[in-house]
Write a protein that binds this DNA or RNA. Sequence first.
DNA 1: GGGTGCATGTAATGGGTTACATGATTCT
DNA 2: AGAATCATGTAACCCATTACATGCACCC
Lengths: 193, 193
Amino acid sequence: MEVLLGLLTIAPMSGYDLGLTIRASVGHIWNESYGQIYPNLKKLAADGSVTAKTERQKGKPDRTIYSITKKGRERLAKWLAVPPQPEIPRNELLLKLFFGTQVPADVLIGYVESMVEGEGAVLRELTRIEHEDIAQNQHYPGAPYWKMAARFGQLELKAHLRWAEETLAELRTIAGKQRSDAETRKEKKHAGK
Amino acid sequence: MEVLLGLLTIAPMSGYDLGLTIRASVGHIWNESYGQIYPNLKKLAADGSVTAKTERQKGKPDRTIYSITKKGRERLAKWLAVPPQPEIPRNELLLKLFFGTQVPADVLIGYVESMVEGEGAVLRELTRIEHEDIAQNQHYPGAPYWKMAARFGQLELKAHLRWAEETLAELRTIAGKQRSDAETRKEKKHAGK
DNA sequence: GGGTGCATGTAATGGGTTACATGATTCT
DNA sequence: AGAATCATGTAACCCATTACATGCACCC
């Protein structure tokens, strides 16, 4: 809800643009789906926090451009003044790892590897943003804060990748043991026949 | 839902115990409230994944002890075989920092400081768990996986704390500037009179 | 007597995702 | 011709937290 107000302080935008901008700027921090954005914009308009203007376009469909109002800025300020509550963690990968005894280690290796892929891509994207986007907006007063947020993501992701390396090494030795155990069982079965 | 099955592979437990155990073991990874645990246990019992036995206690109220069944183990295995989807991030602190221009820096400093407090405590708790709990259960086959999960938390939290330090330094210089700016405005007002 | 811990549960409420629907244009 | 992008929206559904309710016992 308040992400919308926050982004509208930077520039007036349509709901569609807000979706794109969220993904491009605060995507690694926060997410909102269109099923959330459009209804919320309506609510914000109803309470006077934003105003809507319809803009005709040639070729493309009409856009509804939203701008933040004084009341909207107050609402944003009020929200910013509320101390953020610590988030409840919910890491499915880690939970599955925790119950690792119930799955072959190879499966877990696959999960960690695709995590490395995914997070690696985000990390590269984040460093790109730091160099290109934020550097280009040096003049904008928000730049230092954007950098802090980007930096958080970088440090966290690097920590994840370091963990993944050390964990993969361990999982591979476990997987090796599981394979040799299976071998032994096969041999015994063979001998038993 | 499946956390319950997973923990029941370690030992049969009541719903109340499951709540406590979740907090103590996978609390930094996953969370479930009692409003979730009790209805889910009923559903799991209805589908034959767990069995319930009522246990009378002197003094204390009756407990319903749940045990996992063969069907429950299969269900757990099926869930473990599904690749975990990357989680959608939702970090309120970071989002508020991102819109930092709209708040006095002192407020942000307070937020980061209480994050340091909170996460610092979790980090200490996590290292304690690694040394005491997991070390004591060396014999249990799950131990290496528990260590991996604990290690993830440690590395991540350390990264957060490093980020917090560097961010606090930057926020403090910003806050200093804001204070001297306010000074200047006051002087001008004074001179103007 | 009152607070705290044990123990179980339900209902209201809120939040959010997914899927669906529409429709025009541009690119391959 | 068909896919993708622009653009907006709604409805169904799921999940989860919060708050409430109950009741006993132990400790201060």
